[in-house]
Nucleic acid binder design. Structure first.
Lengths: 243, 243
DNA sequence: CGTACGGTTGAGCTCACTCAATAAGGGTGG
DNA sequence: CCACCCTTATTGAGTGAGCTCAACCGTACG
């Protein structure tokens, strides 16, 4: 299990996924196309299957998540807990010198456009503008993280669950379909939100009972009443932001 | 109240505080002394009194905290809550484009070596090495923030209080004296840790009753049994890090 | 057909919150 | 110096959200 599964020797991938290469990603803002092409030539499109540990040849991977999701897993003693969730378009970033015991793990079939940490470091040194963009993104991430956890620390169980569902619904893989796939087990949602599996289950069922969401299967849901869900997050007063 | 109080027109301050200029701060790592001097010439030593809103001419301030502490205050609706605490040697950083409703506020008499955000931005563009250092620091901060809040979200009230006391004891202004000054009211500690004032009071008194700490006044304490306090944080299994 | 794993549901308990009353400082003005 | 006020801290009693423990269901898979 947890086998490393980068897309088989597909270094030529930049061409393959050029069609979906996010030129408009903030990471590339203000860079001339020629530079982007050069950067992209260093990056590859990695594909991971469910639960795969995300790394390139045992080296940390830096990159943009194209599809799927990445869970940040902390293993302490014998219990694992999910301490963060990265969604498409998010940046999988380097986290300073200390690696700590936190590892990224794929949730569902996941594609990442990226390169190894040392390679990325070289890119940063070569393209100052890229470095500035990266800095901005890391800073934004820092702020988002602070908001996320700060609010989580103060939210009730239903508020936390509502917040997560809303977040996931906004990052749905299929914006055309109203049905979204949580992709996470109750237990994983629990560790992510600091709740117990049973509590998560109860909250989700309660929302379903209230008609706020529809439950097709444990992980397939549809948001029926966005307003009510929004209200349930307890964030009504701030309306916007909150990713 | 909350009046802006930079050290009166003291732009010449770099010389004044040169003695305590943290040349060894990671922000300046690897920079030639000449560059550091040049950077320092742009920075000034700001001094804020208790509860002062930290800013330079209404512009966000970036810099290194030399003494005192900075609370990150979020004002939402009519209630304020402390969502973070920065201690000496910490970096007061820019947090991406969005400013959000979070403002830094001085806790006690606080000194900051820094400059306005635009000025700092210019410095970053001028000294690539400074930019790399800053990036590393922001990334580290991100990781530390994630750990901090992640753990907070899962900790019990006594664990949270123990964690804060330990953190404060490690950043004591007077390493010679065993007595540390919390500088924060019970209410502020409460908003910082996601607890109620009464709960904070109860936990602190409980630690005192157990002989783990000594209480000289509500804010002046001494850690008598570091081991027990460490154990009370619930972090025994990871021993180190945890700032 | 049985086993396993994820999900659901119920009963009881605990910890932190709420409400409320009381103390302890710390200034300020007489 | 003392009386007073205002903020902060302490302490108690009762409540409730979320946890624990435990049983049960449903689907996938060998």
């Amino acid at each position: 299990m947890n086998a490393l599964t980068p897309l088989s020797e597909a270094t030529a991938l930049p061409l393959t996924c050029a069609g979906l290469l996010p030129f408009d990603h903030p990471l590339f803002a203000g860079l001339p196309l020629s530079d982007i092409a050069e950067i992209a030539s260093v990056m590859s499109c990695y594909r991971f299957k469910d639960d795969a540990l995300i790394a390139a040849d045992d080296v940390p991977l830096v990159g943009i998540i194209l599809a799927g999701a990445v869970a940040r897993i902390a293993k302490q003693w014998d219990q694992v807990s999910t301490v963060g969730l990265l969604l498409p378009n998010d940046l999988l970033i380097l986290e300073g010198p200390r690696t700590a015991a936190i590892h990224p793990e794929a949730v569902g079939l996941t594609e990442i456009l990226g390169c190894s940490a040392p390679e990325f470091d070289a890119l940063l040194r070569r393209f100052p503008k890229l470095q500035l963009n990266y800095l901005d993104l890391v800073a934004s991430e820092l702020q988002a993280t602070r908001e996320w956890y700060t609010l989580l620390g103060r939210k009730t169980a239903p508020e936390r669950v509502a917040t997560l569902i809303l977040k996931l619904s906004r990052h749905s893989d299929h914006p055309d379909s109203p049905v979204i796939d949580l992709r996470l087990t109750r237990d994983r949602i629990g560790t992510l939100l600091g709740l117990k599996m049973e509590t998560v289950s109860r909250q989700i069922r309660a929302f379903a009972k209230l008609g706020i969401i529809a439950l097709f299967s444990p992980t397939k849901i549809e948001v029926l009443d966005h307003g009510a869900l929004m209200h349930a997050t307890g964030d009504v007063w701030r309306e916007k932001t909150m990713l």
